[in-house]
Design a protein around this nucleic acid. Sequence first.
DNA 1: ATCGCGACTTAGCATCCTTTAA
DNA 2: TTAAAGGATGCTAAGTCGCGAT
Length: 574
Amino acid sequence: MKGKGKLKKNMKNSQFSKIMKVPPGSGGGKKWTTLEHNGVIFPPPYKPHGVKMLYNGKPIDLTPEQEEVATMFAVMKDTDYAAKPTFIDNFFTDWRKVLGKNHIIKNFELCDFTPIYEWHLREKERKKQMTTEEKKTLREDKLKQEEKYMWAVVDGVKEKVGNFRVEPPGLFRGRGEHPKMGKLKRRILPSDITINIGKGAPVPECPIPGESWKEVKHDNTVTWLAFWNDPINPKDFKYVFLAASSSLKGQSDKEKYEKSRKLKGHIQRIRENYTKDFKNKDVTRRQIAVATYLIDKLALRAGNEKDDDEADTVGCCTLKVDNVTCMPPNQIQFDFLGKDSIRYFNTVEVEELVYKAIEGFRAGKKPGQDLFDKIDTSRLNAHLKDLMPGLTAKVFRTYNASITLDGILHEETEDGTVLEKIAVYQRANKEVAIICNHQRSVSKSHESQMTRMNEKIDELKSQMEELKADLNKAKKGKPLGYDSEGKPKRNLAPEAIQKKVATLEGKIEKMEMDKRIKEDLKTVALGTSKINYLDPRITVAWCKRHEVPIEKIFNKSLLAKFVWAMDVDPEFRF
DNA sequence: ATCGCGACTTAGCATCCTTTAA
DNA sequence: TTAAAGGATGCTAAGTCGCGAT
């Protein structure tokens, strides 16, 4: 509920929120001096397949435009979107606009998309059946077409472009219970696109004959190469940026980590500061204190206001009273949907004064009302800025993640094999992912994989039984008897059998460990923190100190993204 | 102070590609 | 040799936060 109901939240404004307009060394907001690139590439025009869907049991002729939208829906049959009323409603409303006023198709219930769906399955199968050779040529052809769009030249340096492909039309797939799911995302045309390019550089030729760009700008205070308005949310933009490996992105990434490192020098004072305010008589001050505490302790997101036409999710400042439960004597249970509608469910012990304060904020409010009714992200960030230049809520997340990694790596790395050291890193990585609540959905095959592992372990264990029986016999000098196929077993010395037992034991242990890790990580996404929250210098320095090849931790894209961190001193501490 | 715009980072999932196990 | 698992990459949605207008 943006705007409404948030009108009169008063708060003494910070008298001195002196902020640097631009990060030092970035030259007055200027991001580049020269910029050349080739614009964007458009998806190919729609190719009609001519497969007729059924309406009321009868085949229906559709124009290519109508068929295109029908196909978008048909191919989603086996996703769970296809069964959601909101999705169907939005799709059908938008499709009917394409069908036109007097079209025979009026009732979704009478639509049968199965013929198109089956065509789609056949197409998929056909693609799968292609030989590796054919696939390779196809890939190479595509690469050739796209090559020129992949690169930009920024201040004389060739840099990769991130997303030079214009998004194809489709049905909007919002996350969670998104009110706009299923709406038609229309095709983007050159006349939708604004290009940003250096003054002297040649303007990219519009790739669709007879059409032209909406606008060409020469703005060197921004880093985008092109943008268009999001057709689903016309007030939002879709940007084309350089890739993560570019020095422009690398520089700001480094600045991000440097800022959160700076927080280390202020954190003690900040904690003392908000702890004092837990019992401040001014509610606003108390709310700021408690919100800051939660952001610091639990790495919650700031929580901006959202519109009604977005999924209903919250962050710290937008927590509702029903998202928190006070559990005596001093535990708080959090249960809310955060970014991407990922559930945050956590019970934590808090300081007594925090517990009291939260009870107080909840008092007399109905479910759905704001827990922190006197503050919002901009007030909170304004306050944080007074405590440290450039400090905002998200800095705490970066700080929390990186300091945790640094700490665990320093405490827990022991002499041992590279494999063991990597295991320590992964444990630390997992710890961070849990703090940041980075989740993934369990893979469809998880259950069956677990069953298979259990079967395997059982099998190994029964082998172990047999081996131990053999060992006993061998020790007593008895013959080992016959194996399961009735053949006589070779009589081995007890020592030899003992060795077999040890090997098998190791195998079982490893399997059980693998199983535990797999189960443990089934809902935890490690990648997000590696990409966005963990200062790569911590990792690089650790690899250097412990002689772990950096390639064991960073894949090709991370190595490219983090070039700026590679020459770090081995003794670097976050 | 408030609002809405604009630009940028962060996020999970789908798909493609490679490695590993059977 | 093949299939399954796992990792890398692509895609685009969904956040954060600064800023200028009012």
